[in-house]
Design a protein around this nucleic acid. Structure first.
Lengths: 149, 149
DNA sequence: GTTCCTGCAAAGGTTTTGCACCATA
DNA sequence: TATGGTGCAAAACCTTTGCAGGAAC
């Protein structure tokens, strides 16, 4: 169950932008709104497609620039994916924390959260010589749809 | 404390190759030996550089092909990295299982293993609708060296 | 001798950069 | 109006593919 309504995220993102003295140009605004509408886990190309289908005349470069900026502001997280284009996903105001299941057959992704996992990682983090600030966990497998076929 | 001597890995890799009916050509052999010598976490470009500095005349394509094949055989694992080239790391005979700490300042990586973490992931895996076959965990932070400066 | 591996070069896809124009604050 | 955002096109980047020659079995 998604805890953060995406409308909240849109506001959060715009707030982060203006807080850091960034203007709300056409492309940037369109990107934030599209992300808010679609939810997380989009790649740049899909986003460009969605925007153009929606009648916006955005340049590819502007979309990449917007995504990079939003990631830098911490309202978006870049998720590297093997052999494809990078995906981006929303980070809510509360620092909204979850991890991913990805289907190695079709590429579908699902999110999950787990208390026990977080605790294990917390304990572990305190034991290392690194100053751990973040973590991510990805489970690979086969999604229900692909298991059927 | 690395549990698997790299010399072991080299043998393991060659065994996997011949078991599956693959020949040991020049480039392939050079890649396996270089990986065995360096240990894990190399990217394709570094590997080409290392080989050429060592006097081998290998083509980039052969290195990519060798890495892809070794990954397919399960003796290498491809690790997608944000904003750079993919890295590959050794998987030992025992299915050798560990995760990574990466320094967001300098890119250094360290490996760790943790029983409690594995248990938490195991329990979690059984609860999802996906058929989970693998997982990876990455902790991001600052390494001891970068904390000093 | 046949099959597979190899290097080279060219193509492919994704992301970044340069630049003139335009819009925001 | 000054600054920064934008689109377009070209470049840079990593990776894959095509192909003729050569090596392994």
């Amino acid at each position: 169950m998604p805890a953060t309504p995406t409308a909240r995220w849109t506001d959060h993102a715009f707030a982060a932008l203006s807080e850091h003295g960034h203007r709300a140009g056409g492309a940037r605004t369109a990107v934030v709104e599209a992300l808010g509408r679609r939810g997380g886990c989009v790649d740049a190309d899909e986003l460009v497609g969605a925007l153009r289908r929606g009648g916006k005349r955005v340049g590819v470069a502007s979309v990449y620039r917007a995504l990079a900026l939003l990631a830098e502001l911490g309202v978006l997280q870049r998720v590297p994916v093997a052999g494809g284009s990078a995906r981006y996903e929303l980070v809510g105001p509360g620092g909204d924390h979850h991890h991913h299941l990805v289907c190695d057959d079709c590429g579908a992704t699902a999110a999950f959260e787990d208390e026990a996992l977080e605790r294990a990682i917390g304990r572990l983090s305190r034991r290392t010589a690194y100053a751990v600030q973040a973590h991510d966990v990805t489970l690979h497998g086969t999604c229900p749809d692909c298991q059927r076929s």
